[in-house]
Design a protein around this nucleic acid. Structure first.
Lengths: 138, 138
DNA sequence: CATAAAAAGACTTATAATGTCTTTTTTGTG
DNA sequence: CACAAAAAAGACATTATAAGTCTTTTTATG
């Protein structure tokens, strides 16, 4: 239960790798994909999502590629995960009230809210800088 | 992300309902299903899983049905969820070492372990008694 | 033995995950 | 300007999982 999908796994690997490179160095998608062992076409989709919300900056054409959209200590694991997996919602009823007809009487609801907050808090404390930390750039 | 499946949702509804009934009263699966608005055949599968691990006790034949396997204050939400959803593992790499080749260098791993523990702790604190509490038996 | 109920297993359908392929757009370079 | 290099976009294919149904079997009771 509560399992990260492969997409999420790949997303993390990819952007952590990018964070481990010198900040101004433009990385080819194909290089990243090879380095973190992810199908390049799939990683492309993921990085497109990153790009749309500014987690990475993309350059097209010759000499193009990707760099982080912000410094690695300003990007959290929470952002990365939610970028590709969507919001963290342990149960549908947490998304919006009224979703669950039992709302008023449902004692389980607050538990899921609690879970949601705890998980988000944990992931929000972890920055890409920390994650890239002891993986020194080769 | 991290969403409970419908099966899990149904499982909780079903067993919480059972917990809200007088402890010795044998409940028909069909009655439970109707009360919590779940397809009876699907709920049957769920209760079979419960039965196997003793969360509920089943009686077959005429006059048969289900009762809780233990008192409601001795059954946790964690048990219920894991019974039908499997163990709570935010990432494959948490299941067993060696799963992830990057193991040693992976800084993300401990984060998932942390998430796993927090979530389990939260769910482990919640008993069926609490959940059934303010839902008085009709 | 007839009936009521759960257990078990095979099966179907729907949805989401995972991934590929092709075409288009953008950009730098000879 | 033409070409090549790269990402963006969209359509497509495949596989896995979720969700649910149906049929048959087992067990218990009156």
């Amino acid at each position: 239960m509560m399992e990260l999908t492969r997409k999420g796994e790949y997303a993390i690997r990819g952007i952590v790798f990018l964070a481990s490179r010198p900040p101004e160095q433009i990385c080819l998608l194909s290089d990243i994909a090879a380095a973190v062992d992810v199908p390049p076409t799939f990683l492309a989709k993921i990085f497109q999502q990153f790009s749309k919300i500014g987690l990475v900056k993309s350059y097209r054409g010759t000499g193009g590629g990707f760099v982080l959209g912000r410094s690695a200590d300003k990007i959290t694991l929470l952002e990365v995960v939610e970028a590709v997996e969507g919001p963290i919602v342990p149960n549908r009823c947490v998304i919006n009230k009224g979703e669950c007809a039992r709302d008023a009487t449902c004692n389980v609801h607050p538990v899921w809210v609690d879970v949601q907050h705890r998980v988000r808090d944990i992931l929000n404390e972890v920055t890409l800088q920390k994650l890239a930390g002891t993986n020194p750039p080769k």
